[in-house]
Simulated scan of single mutants.
Amino acid sequence: MSISKSKIDQACRVAEEFTKLYYESTDKRRHLISRLYLDTGILTWNGNGLTGNERIQKFYIELPSSDHTISTLDAQPIFDGAVNNQLSFLIQVSGTVKYQDKPPKSFQQSFVITAQGDKWKIVTDCFRLQEPLTSTDKN
C-alpha cells in the first residue's frame, strides 16, 4: 500500500505542468477548456455542480474574464487500489482570482486528474472562492 517517492515526484511535476495549462486555458482560451475534462467530468463551482465536459465549457465561457495567480500548489498520487490501478493524482491549489474589474479574491481548488493515453484529464474539479461567512450562513 506504500506509494513510491518517484510517484510522489511525478505527481508534483505533473501538477505544475497541468495547472499552468489549466489556468492559461481558463484565463485565455476558455473555448478549449472541455479538452481538459473527461467527457463525464464533474465540476463543483462554489457549491454548484455540473457534469460533462461540454456543460463545463459552456459554464466557463459565461463567466466574466479572469486572471488567476497561484500561491500554493500541492499534489499527491492516489493509491492504485482506489482507482483500479489507473494513474491518478490529487492536486490542490490556492491563490487569487480577479474577475473583470472586481477586486481580487482568494480561492481554493482541488482536482483529481487521470491519465488518458498521453494526456491528463480532469475527473473532478472543486472550486471555491474564499469569502467570509455572512450571518445568514452561520445558521
Score class of each variant (00 low, 15 high):
residue 38 L to I: 01
residue 90 L to D: 01
residue 88 S to W: 06
residue 128 R to G: 06
residue 112 V to Y: 03
residue 134 T to M: 15
residue 38 L to A: 11
residue 122 I to P: 01
residue 51 T to E: 15
residue 18 F to N: 05
residue 13 R to Q: 14
residue 14 V to E: 13
residue 60 Y to W: 15
residue 118 D to I: 07
residue 44 T to C: 14
residue 125 D to P: 07
residue 102 K to E: 11
residue 94 S to W: 09
residue 22 Y to M: 03
residue 137 D to G: 09
residue 64 P to W: 07
residue 77 P to N: 06
residue 92 Q to A: 10
residue 61 I to D: 05
residue 1 M to C: 01
residue 125 D to Y: 02
residue 128 R to N: 14
residue 15 A to M: 08
residue 35 R to C: 05
residue 28 K to N: 14
residue 109 Q to W: 03
residue 28 K to A: 05
residue 68 H to N: 03
residue 8 I to K: 11
residue 83 V to G: 00
residue 132 P to K: 13
residue 56 I to H: 03
residue 122 I to M: 08
residue 24 E to M: 07
residue 30 R to G: 12
residue 69 T to K: 07
residue 54 E to F: 12
residue 85 N to T: 10
residue 89 F to R: 02
residue 134 T to C: 10
residue 46 N to E: 00
residue 99 Y to F: 15
residue 97 V to N: 00
residue 96 T to G: 01
residue 72 T to I: 04
residue 109 Q to T: 02
residue 37 Y to H: 06
residue 92 Q to L: 12
residue 88 S to N: 02
residue 37 Y to N: 01
residue 133 L to H: 13
residue 105 K to M: 09
residue 110 S to M: 10
residue 39 D to N: 09
residue 40 T to D: 05
residue 57 Q to L: 07
residue 36 L to I: 07
residue 47 G to H: 11
residue 53 N to L: 08
residue 137 D to T: 08
residue 7 K to W: 05
residue 41 G to F: 05
residue 42 I to E: 11
residue 87 L to I: 10
residue 131 E to K: 14
residue 3 I to H: 12
residue 107 F to D: 04
residue 107 F to I: 06
residue 40 T to E: 04
